[in-house]
Simulated assay, not measured.
Amino acid sequence: MKKVILDVDTGIDDALAISYAIHSPALEVCGITTTFGNITVEEATRNTLQMLELLGAADIPVYQGAARPIVRELTGKARLFHGENGLGNVVLPPPVTAAQPESATQFLISTIKANPGQITLITVGSMTNLARAIMAAPEIVTLIEQVVAMGGAVTVPGNRTPVAEANICADPEAAAFVMQSGIPMTLVGLDVTMQTLLTREHLREWRARDTPVSRVFADMCELYMDAYATVGNVRG
């Protein structure tokens, strides 16, 4: 199994990413780090804990990370697409578990150093946590197996502005620093993700299963789809 760390700003899309990762027989999720983005880092941490408890994976440790970009001011939340709470306004019980006392940056550094050449970091939010980790411990660039980042757009419009994808736009200076660090990286941009669309039929199938998990994900994704159907692919 491949050892991975997920770096998330848990709104609806990252809740799906967490579920896919922890259910994959090919992955061992060593921990999850949180950052700002679709919502605040505090909300992302809460949502991550709630999703892990819903999915029966509360033993996976969560580490709270960056609350703002390394240079810029924090922008507003993506309420239209993710709801007020980041989970499509689906109300889950308050988490019983809590984030670890160690910061996301500390966890990234210590875990990569303890597992040289074995850790893959999957970032599906801003790259701020990774940038801060490299700044604090540049040697991890040669110790990590790879970074797989959901970010960027090449031949399609952005989803934050016509020329900017949301995860890169959240902290462009952090993304530039990471990409120039020499760290092994694979970018999976909107060119790829827009070809792997969730459909209304999928939601009907989930509702037909009628489990706590399937109902929550169907309700969350319905708001997500409705938002994109209303305004298209570019966020205001």
Rank of each mutant, 00 (worst) to 15 (best):
M1F: 01
K3C: 02
V4Y: 00
I5Q: 08
T10S: 09
I12T: 00
D13Y: 03
A21T: 11
S24C: 13
L27N: 05
L27E: 00
E28A: 12
V29S: 08
I32R: 03
V41F: 04
V41C: 14
A44K: 11
N47C: 02
L49F: 10
Q50N: 14
M51L: 15
D59F: 10
D59I: 11
I60V: 08
Y63S: 01
Q64A: 13
G65E: 04
R68I: 04
G88W: 01
P95Q: 09
A98W: 02
A98T: 05
I109F: 10
I112C: 01
N115R: 11
P116T: 07
Q118L: 06
T120A: 10
T120Y: 01
L121N: 03
S126E: 02
M127F: 02
L130Y: 02
L130N: 07
R132G: 08
A137P: 05
E139M: 06
V141T: 03
T142M: 11
L143H: 05
L143G: 09
A153I: 03
A153V: 01
V154Y: 04
V154F: 07
T155Y: 06
V156C: 14
P162E: 08
A164P: 00
A164S: 15
A164W: 01
D171V: 09
S181D: 05
G182R: 14
T186R: 12
L197G: 05
L198P: 07
T199E: 14
L203W: 01
R209V: 03
T211R: 10
V216E: 05
F217I: 04
C221P: 13
Y224G: 15
T230N: 15
G232E: 12
G232Q: 12
R235A: 14
